[in-house]
Design a protein around this nucleic acid. Sequence first.
DNA 1: CAGATATCTGGACACTATCAAGATAGCTAC
DNA 2: GTAGCTATCTTGATAGTGTCCAGATATCTG
Lengths: 194, 194
Amino acid sequence: MSTSGDRYHHGALAAALLEAADALLGESGAATLSLREVARRAGVSHNAPYHHFADRQALLKRLSERHMSALLDAQRAAASASPPGASRLRAMAVAYVDYAADHPQGFALVFDPEVCVPGAPSETMAPLIRANEELIADVVGEVDPRLDEPARAAAVAGVWGLAHGLANLVVAGHLPRDAAAPGVDALVALVRGD
Amino acid sequence: MSTSGDRYHHGALAAALLEAADALLGESGAATLSLREVARRAGVSHNAPYHHFADRQALLKRLSERHMSALLDAQRAAASASPPGASRLRAMAVAYVDYAADHPQGFALVFDPEVCVPGAPSETMAPLIRANEELIADVVGEVDPRLDEPARAAAVAGVWGLAHGLANLVVAGHLPRDAAAPGVDALVALVRGD
DNA sequence: CAGATATCTGGACACTATCAAGATAGCTAC
DNA sequence: GTAGCTATCTTGATAGTGTCCAGATATCTG
């Protein structure tokens, strides 16, 4: 099974389609991404994708899972490259924003309600989201080990929310990319009363 | 000029189209919002909207400006209903999240990069964004009047980012609506070390 | 009241998602 | 090996979309 060439049976069409779709996503965003153009880029007929994805949304869903996985990896890498405690939490937030800035369309896709219907994540997405929450929860636990479960969950929401909001504002052009880290620090300073 | 009826000249088509589009937005979101369906709801031909909006994107842009304006109003109302200082900041964040939860599609539209191209807000949108930042900056100034300009701008980014992120996570279904306020409080507690 | 102008209509084109039916190729059982 | 089965891919068709164009209609201006 060759991975390319102009054979009738492509051999790895699903992967090739995802690759083409990801490239297309980076060029023009999910809204204008057309299945036919994806097929064209993969050198295949306009209907071939339907043998690998139920419909357009299914392909986008798979793409979003890829990006969520990469976003999680980026945070893990940042976490293990940073000393434990509050600075690790900060590094993860920066990595989160960086990923969004580097892959704005992919990041948007992960949280696109049209793709991942709110409250009903796919079987692949759900564990990724849970892993992300647990990663944050672990580091929150490092910062303050005395927190009980509900308090820690609330803190996770706060941390995730801050990183997520800064990422979105950067992607939307309302904040420069390098405003995220100072934003975190300034919020911390404000809350602590200097 | 009557405001309704089946006259040839509608009289207030632009407003009626925006109204129909907003209703449609709430039902199915911006991605599947079709100009033709909007026209159908307003009882005019599929081409009538083009005499009031340059194209589909222009209509969505106007809709997003409406929602941004309402979002700003909601924060202002929350601010003036709350005593000055940190609690006012918290109330504004809650109002921000509440608006997003009540108008998920409209809120998403405001920050949709397909509608408001990053870095190039419309002439109507730009002052609204600026007003929102100034509103937050004022309240941040109440909390800590000693901050100089860059520090205050960074704090605004942090506050806005936190509210924005929680709002987005609630809209995406990753947080229950009532997790926003505890999230803020828990983040504050975490940062202050209890 | 006549002409100019804004508004609205119908038709057309190119594009899209998706369905249905047929062609091809790789795999399995004998 | 080869007959048949099945997954894969293709062509063709349908319905819906955004947008352009030319013409019809109503309101406004002189």
